[in-house]
Design a protein around this nucleic acid. Structure first.
Lengths: 227, 227
DNA sequence: GCCACAACGAGAGCACTGCTCTTGCACGTC
DNA sequence: GACGTGCAAGAGCAGTGCTCTCGTTGTGGC
């Protein structure tokens, strides 16, 4: 093995270790992650961490990308399952919800209020779309197999054109209103999980939140046209 | 006016002034509000602020309560308008959205990820319900005037019972599934606004976000049974 | 009118933060 | 052996939330 490669490998391992400890701190302390505390846990000086991440924001960005990838992975695995498109849609929802429940601070990092002063760089764009792409794929497979039976109301006006522009990226025959229904379902999905995690459901639905979520996801599936 | 009242009035004015400056800082710097910076802006020592708010969290709590009240006020005013229940439902949605657009950091404070280490005290519970109460009132007036035509699918299982328990607080004849539809609509409302504010709509719907929101709100109104 | 008291503001100080700069060390290459 | 490079450590700066103390000032009871 080449010496340069060895260096690179050690560096990659160290980078991963920092992220791992940072994630652990995120889980206990929440979003105001202390770089110094992470360094202390690793038994190194705080300044040494700056060899790996130029700033606290850059560390946060790395965590954000990883979180997008993790939840996207969960969604894609659920989407790859068997069953009718509508069932797969609901399954994606449950997979995302369960990931969020298990990693609530990472969820807050990506779908909660943006960290103040933090500007998401370009690197986050592609991983950020994996969940909604899994949902979109479900709709398209429903279209192809003739499983789209009901339809959302036609969008009218300028945003209908914008939906049409987005629809073109998916294929020539994808109706804009289905794209709207998909985005709307994704928004409802995110809203339902955030509401549960951020305490909006307290004092109303306490026991069977999974059931309530399931009920909502079936409604979004129906709205998106999935039989 | 007696002297004690005068003192109390000066204190109330000072408290209000601190909150005002804090809100201004919130609007520019985001959620990591600096108590020292607020004090500097007011030309006073940072320690003096602690005469009015025992901690930064307490100041945040005051801002949160004010924000809940402000958005609740906007929702109630929209709900008091004329028109069919479905129109009032949509009007509430637009009022809340416009308030959120004008006060995005306050929105993030109440509906975004919770501030780390911050535990919402009891004082916030009642103001927090004003928006959803305005929506609920719309459904109930629709029920009374026979404007409920379609119905959400029946919730089954434990969460259906929980919905029934919530429904009893509204009156003897409110069906649980309408409560579910209302909560679901509220969740979708919050999700749609948060998605717009927190950047989830970037690169898809850019121009006519109001139209897209309107389209979604009409769908939630229909799901909640409002004709 | 006087006096005790509570409220108040200012300042110093503690422990913490992100981040920078300099220094010293351990390498592989020439 | 000299050199350059990547790395870690430490000191230091400016900022933070919060506490404590001290002097001042206004207020209510006598």
């Amino acid at each position: 093995m080449n010496a340069a490669n060895l260096r690179a490998r050690v560096r990659a391992e160290m980078t991963e270790e920092i992220k791992q400890v940072a994630r652990r701190h995120l889980a206990t302390d929440g979003a105001n992650l202390s770089l110094r505390a992470v360094a202390r846990d690793l038994g190194m000086a705080s300044s040494a961490v700056y060899r790996y991440f130029a700033s606290r924001d850059e560390l946060l960005t790395a965590l954000i990308i990883d979180a997008y990838d993790a939840v996207g992975e969960a969604a894609e695995q659920a989407a790859a399952g068997q069953g009718e498109p509508a069932e797969r849609w609901v399954a994606i929802g449950h997979a995302v919800r369960e990931w969020a429940l298990a990693n609530r601070h990472q969820w807050a990092l990506i779908y909660g209020s943006p960290v103040p002063g933090y500007q998401a760089p370009q690197d986050t764009i592609v991983p950020a779309t994996r969940v909604i792409m899994a949902l979109a794929e479900t709709i398209r497979s429903g279209l192809e197999s003739g499983r789209i039976t009901t339809f959302p109301p036609q969008p009218a006006g300028r945003f209908g054109e914008e939906l049409a522009a987005v629809a073109e990226q998916f294929g020539p025959d994808v109706p804009p209103y289905l794209v709207g229904g998909g985005i709307s379902g994704f928004i409802h999905l995110c809203g339902a999980i955030s509401a549960e995690l951020f305490g909006q459901l307290d004092n109303t639905i306490e026991d069977d939140r999974r059931g309530f979520f399931d009920w909502q996801m079936r409604a979004t599936a129906a709205f998106a046209g999935l039989a």
